[in-house]
């Protein structure tokens, strides 16, 4: 589904991605982790072309992201993305947030979009909040709406960019529950996250990044039980002992 081959990226003279290669197969959940500044957010934003990369190729469902001829909006419409800071549109209510791209991008009617939106709000347990504005919701509720918004586009895969990092601890669970359920239904997911419990439960593989490099790309069990590199060991001991 997602193929990342030898991707490098420079900002001026600083290299933020160094020859990164990995893949996410259909129905697979892959967790990307690593210390801050390791390039994991940049990598996931390259997958739907929000960030340009300097070298290498990324294909999603066979379509090359870096190819200037690719219709990026069309590709992005099929790839769901969830952001660290939710990024709901604050001037629209919850249902309007869900309907916007369905109408403008997929060409669905307002009614179709609303029906689909309400069904997804039901699923994330927020049907009652459809008429509220994002500023009136808690962080956890906003992030669930953001997930519903991405799902409303019927994506072929989902990208999560640290979806729980901006949340108060008591709200992390409600968001992870939605993500776990999604994974169990067979959604293809690439998740940048530090939630190692989530990784253990649903991830097929864990990709560990540091300084723009993919240091380790291992099946989940192997990664946690016997990390191959010293950097991954150090990272794991830091993150698990907190």
């Amino acid at each position: 589904m997602i193929e990342i081959r030898n991707v490098s990226k420079w900002y001026g003279h600083t290299q933020v991605l160094a020859n990164a290669s990995t893949h996410v197969a259909k129905g697979e959940v892959v967790v990307v982790c690593g210390p801050s500044g390791s390039g994991k957010s940049t990598l996931i934003k390259c997958v739907n072309g929000l960030e340009a990369f300097t070298q290498g190729t990324i294909t999603v469902d066979g379509i090359s992201v870096g190819d200037p001829k690719t219709d990026l909006p069309k590709l992005r419409a099929r790839v769901g993305m969830v952001f660290q800071h939710f990024e709901l549109f604050p001037h629209m209510n919850v249902l309007q947030n869900l309907a916007l791209a369905q109408v403008k991008v997929l060409g669905r009617s307002q009614e179709e979009a609303a029906t689909r939106g309400e069904a997804l709000l039901d699923r994330v347990g927020l049907r009652a909040h459809a008429a509220k504005f994002p500023g009136q919701l808690s962080g956890g509720q906003q992030q669930r709406v953001a997930i519903a918004r991405a799902l409303a586009m019927d994506p072929i895969c989902m990208l999560f960019d640290e979806p729980t990092s901006a949340l108060d601890p008591e709200m992390i669970g409600e968001v992870l529950d939605v993500m776990v359920e999604l994974a169990q239904e067979g959604m293809t997911m690439m998740c940048v996250t530090h939630e190692m419990g989530f990784a253990r439960r649903v991830a097929r593989r864990v990709v560990f990044m540091d300084h723009g490099e993919i240091v380790e790309d291992a099946p989940t069990g192997a990664f946690f039980d016997a990390p191959a590199s010293a950097r991954a060991k150090a990272f794991l001991s830091r993150i698990l002992h907190h």
Partner: peptide, 19 residues
């Protein structure tokens, strides 16, 4: 992130500005 979120949903840049 607002621009990114709009683009990630498949809106074109002019649509992202307008909406």
């Amino acid at each position: 992130g607002q621009r990114d979120a709009a683009l990630a949903l498949g809106l074109t840049l002019p649509q992202a500005y307008r909406q």
